[in-house]
């Protein structure tokens, strides 16, 4: 097991290498920004025809995480679908996978900016769960920014953990991201730690005290 323990708002969490957050005390598995149906949405709008396999890829990774943790609740922090039409256009095989997930584990969907239909936010043990972190309204757990970080020449999606905000990396396959030192993220978490995803979850300090590298391209 190579998850990284994270203390946030008086609770212990496990930042998993997959980019999912496990909350042991609540038996909750939390993921953000699946962006299911992204390739379908791009195709619909006359863009490139990306390989239409990302929904299956994302859902099977989520299924694996759910099987490994067996959560009492599965919390999706918004932008689960790339837009509402994409939700309606899931091909049958992907639809079956999605239904199985939701039938097997108690699933709660929060609304995102791409799919504004779910609940605006939830509260669990005094922590708000929402799509976008709200400054001054913490503690909250959120997604939206798709944070990533470069370390030793390797770029990875990352959790960002501060005093008032815990921001999850995007779980969806076809997602770009924002560098963890971007002003939008730094304003919410001026200092704290980031946990890199990958083969193992690896913590690093971010914010004050660490020289900010010039952001560059990369995964």
């Amino acid at each position: 097991m190579s998850a990284c323990p994270v203390r946030f708002a008086g609770h212990i969490f496990a930042a998993r290498p997959s980019g999912a957050l496990w909350w042991p005390a609540e038996r909750a598995l939390i993921v953000a920004d699946l962006h299911l149906g992204k390739s379908e949405r791009m195709a619909r709008r006359g863009g490139a025809l990306l390989p239409p396999f990302e929904t299956r890829d994302t859902l099977s990774r989520l299924m694996a995480e759910a099987r490994a943790t067996d959560p009492a609740r599965l919390l999706l922090l918004g932008d689960t679908f790339d837009d509402t039409a994409a939700a309606a256009a899931l091909p049958p095989q992907d639809r079956a996978l999605w239904d199985t997930l939701r039938r097997t584990w108690h699933c709660a969907e929060i609304a995102g900016n791409h799919d504004p239909t779910g609940a605006p936010e939830l509260s669990l043990a005094g922590i708000a769960l929402r799509h976008i972190a709200e400054a001054g309204q913490g503690p909250d757990i959120s997604g939206h920014y798709h944070p990533k970080l470069r370390l030793a020449g390797v770029a990875r999606r990352a959790f960002v953990v501060g005093q008032a905000h815990l921001i999850l990396p995007a779980f969806g396959a076809y997602t770009g991201g924002l560098w963890a030192d971007d002003p939008a993220i730094a304003a919410l978490v001026p200092r704290g730690i980031a946990v890199l995803t990958g083969p193992r979850a690896v913590p690093v300090p971010i914010g004050a005290g660490r020289r900010a590298p010039l952001r560059g391209a990369g995964g």
Binding site: L151, A152, G153, V154, R156, I193, L196, G198, P199, R200, V202, P203, V204, P205, R210
Partner: peptide, 13 residues
């Protein structure tokens, strides 16, 4: 590279 990432992270921590 994984080892390097972990070493770098530990050093920064």
């Amino acid at each position: 590279h994984e080892r390097l990432v972990e070493e770098e992270a530990a050093r920064l921590m």
